[in-house]
Design a protein around this nucleic acid. Structure first.
Lengths: 218, 218
DNA sequence: AACATAAGTAGCCGATGACAACATTCAGTC
DNA sequence: GACTGAATGTTGTCATCGGCTACTTATGTT
């Protein structure tokens, strides 16, 4: 499973190859780790121009490889998008987990940090989040879905811990974690869609967590 | 511009007449209301095959009009998508407003109905909701954004009323309404993305509203 | 009736995703 | 070290798409 990540090849090789190809032109037939290079370039393109502008041929050109080469690693465009989404969930999960673990203070404080981490991930990677939230009808779903659990996990764990420590009501832990996730995700979506100004996200996230803990009733 | 004799001699006419002569085909030069027909066909295609598969040329073919005709009404593809999103917000707003007005019982009950209406809209129109949530970088944003307020409005009104009747805490009304909207929207997104099974949405929505009102703390 | 304008048509262009056939390299195996 | 099958990359092709320009036809105003 992790084997593909074992032989880590720096993406620098491709760029330097492109540069010197004007002279020595020792462009190798095999790239080394085209898959990783594609993912890296795709993520950068995603951030720069959005998912709609993401073209396999563009990426191939940028990396300096033929237009059909990406096909070996991502037979269809959607496969690349799925891989990006999966990576996104992994990173989001890490960031939430890190935020939670960044201190051993009260549960509310860690909850706040987790939500804030999510919000910042969303602001840093709007197009990626949109991709992660995109409808998936294809068979690639289970793969992505499983990696998404990595992102929910830390929140659900937090809920469970809160219940055990009696600082949260009892209740369906997974549901409640999901709801918190959905709330922040929804706020980020509103920002990305341009319906809410970005500078409000921090404040909204904070209010949302308060709301989540204390409720709206008097 | 030139005399009519010019296009009588024009050989192209024979080909177009061949097409028309295939049957009675009272195909008029002017469609009547192509814009509405496009929106209708687009919404149906959206529901059937998702936004990615939505092609202006397909719609034109389906309606029986030349491939460039849609351009008169939607100069760019994104303009059609914007119009669809705007319509979506209008309808969503109506449905939420109707649900709220469907009885004069307690605020909590109306809140539940509003949330449920949203959830059902999301399940009935997954691709449309995705479109409404899509990132918009173009100048079309303000148009769509304003129509989106129509959807938020009923929720915000409900919050305000709750505060006035003292069944909700004081606080930033618009923020709190936005947060509730975001929560349901987020849950629907999780379902549409295939990360949560559809049959769970009703239950999750209910739990979310409870959570929203009572809070998670003991 | 004349004419300006809205609405539809035809044809072209460049780009794209998907595909097939072919070439090169790599990794075992003998 | 040579052989061979599997990975990986390349070239060429195709249908489709969005967007553009030039042209044609209908509509409505005067």
């Amino acid at each position: 499973m992790l084997s593909s990540a074992t032989y880590v090849v720096n993406g620098n090789i491709s760029t330097s190859m492109r540069v010197m190809s004007s002279r020595t032109d020792q462009r190798q037939y095999h790239h080394g780790d085209l898959r990783a290079a594609l993912l890296k370039a795709a993520e950068s393109g995603l951030r720069a121009h959005g998912v709609a502008q993401l073209s396999l041929r563009d990426l191939a050109r940028e990396i300096g490889v033929s237009h059909a080469a990406p096909r070996r690693h991502f037979p269809e465009r959607q496969d690349l998008l799925d891989a990006l989404a999966k990576n996104g969930y992994t990173r989001l999960g890490e960031q939430i987990r890190d935020a939670v673990a960044r201190g051993d203070d009260g549960l509310a404080a860690r909850l706040r940090r987790a939500a804030s981490a999510f919000a910042h991930f969303a602001m840093d990677n709007p197009a990626l989040l949109e991709l992660m939230n995109a409808t998936k009808h294809r068979p690639g779903v289970p793969q992505v879905s499983r990696s998404a659990d990595v992102a929910f996990g830390p929140l659900v764990d937090l809920m469970r811990e809160g219940q055990e420590r009696r600082v949260l009501q009892g209740g369906p832990v997974e549901e409640i974690g999901l709801i918190l996730y959905a709330t922040i995700n929804g706020l980020a979506t509103l920002v990305n869609a341009g319906l809410v100004e970005a500078h409000r996200l921090d404040d909204l996230t904070d209010t949302a967590v308060n709301q989540f803990l204390r409720g709206a009733a008097p």
